[in-house]
Design a protein around this nucleic acid. Structure first.
Lengths: 228, 228
DNA sequence: TGACAATTCAAACAATCAATTGAATCATCC
DNA sequence: GGATGATTCAATTGATTGTTTGAATTGTCA
């Protein structure tokens, strides 16, 4: 009843609160908020069923706490700019953004559940997500919008102001595609892997594909290519 | 007992079975299989709670029946080729594929729930979906793969056989993005509409973006563009 | 009309869920 | 050591779920 929910310091790793946050991240990420049960979370955390209500005040508040906790973890491990110098080119910044987003979604090492939690929220928002959307997702989206705007150039944007948003959506969509549809892709495209090396390959493809597309939009009047 | 008859084939519009299929399509599409309740479906269909078990044998079988029913409806209304002539160019075939997919997902008229049901399955597959994946999704995906392969040309494919799959994923991802993230996009990009005209604009953008990207991949050694 | 099957209905069933309770245990400080 | 508050625990509560039941109703054909 006294515990402050976001006590996430590295000390006391197996405090019940932290064990619950870890278990909640995993179970909520794998099952979604509705299908996840506090029983499974408590079981995974080696805690009593009453622990969730005692420490967090309910399933929803545990979820909100886990979302916030893993957000901090993910941003700590994979900052959106990936340590790029301030004067990096727009091409480099796009590559870094795409790669950091994919790494956040497919973290191969210490599990960072935040990416999967957000991916679920994007499809099936819970009440806890509105604030998260404004404080976390929107800044990231604005960052990408700026990169895309720099790539497009002012003339194209002046000609069609909605183009920035559409191209931004095209870039983000390619990244989210693999995490959202992984279970089906494993049946339809079994050759696709998700180890760190494959993630880098996907990141490189998304970057190349998007840069190629945007460059092409700048020069829309090229002569048609020879049809093989 | 008299049903609004909001639309369907001429025969026996307000049979309980059909009312249940309509209601099931809507509720399953909006809530997902797990969160949807047979009570809500029966209430929407003006049917007794026992009707689901009497007519279909349970919630899962109702779901499978609804999936199959709305698949037929969707394919009837929006065939994947949109009535394109057999000798259409790859560019035209890509445009038709993208537009038909988006129309199937955002049907503006008579509700065709199939697109939303499949979109949910892609993220959270139910046991009923495995057969659907093989008989419905895979043929569509193969169709798009062929279009993309024609656009890429044999030399690029020979150099990197995995490129076809990645570019196919890039095209599909852009289409699915809007349906999956609609609820969040409405908060982040409130200017985006989803009326028929806007759907056509999105389809045109996805087609242009993808064609531009693939053409650029064919000519990867262009000199860097002039910076405005 | 009368019989028979198909369908509908209200009620209840069994299972599962989050949440609560109150006693038992533990940790900490005087 | 003992008192106090924090934490854990098993058991229970109340609500919701899909499903079942058996009687009531409806439709159909003789």
């Amino acid at each position: 009843m006294v515990e402050s929910a976001d006590a996430l310091s590295a000390v006391a790793v197996d405090r019940t609160t932290l064990r619950l946050l870890h278990a909640a991240g995993q179970v909520f990420a794998e099952q979604g908020f509705a299908r996840a049960t506090v029983r499974e979370i408590c079981n995974l955390a080696d805690a009593n069923i009453a622990a969730v209500n005692y420490h967090f005040g309910g399933k929803e508040k545990l979820y909100a706490a886990a979302l916030s906790f893993w957000k901090d973890e993910a941003l700590l491990k994979y900052p959106p700019t990936l340590g790029l110098p301030a004067d990096a080119s727009a091409d480099q910044r796009l590559a870094a953004f795409v790669r950091s987003l994919l790494l956040r979604l497919f973290d191969p090492g210490r599990p960072t559940w935040h990416g999967k939690l957000v991916a679920r929220e994007l499809i099936e928002p819970t009440p806890a997500f509105d604030e998260h959307l404004q404080t976390f997702v929107r800044p990231l989206l604005d960052l990408l919008r700026n990169i895309v705007a720099a790539l497009l150039g002012p003339e194209l944007i002046a000609a069609d102001p909605a183009l920035v948003g559409r191209c931004t959506a095209s870039v983000v969509s390619q990244c989210l595609f693999y995490i959202h549809h992984r279970s089906c892709l494993e049946k339809l495209l079994p050759e696709q892997q998700y180890d760190p090396q494959s993630i880098d390959q996907i990141a490189e493809h998304v970057t190349r594909f998007s840069l190629s597309a945007i460059r092409g939009l700048r020069q829309p009047l090229r002569s048609p290519r020879t049809p093989m």
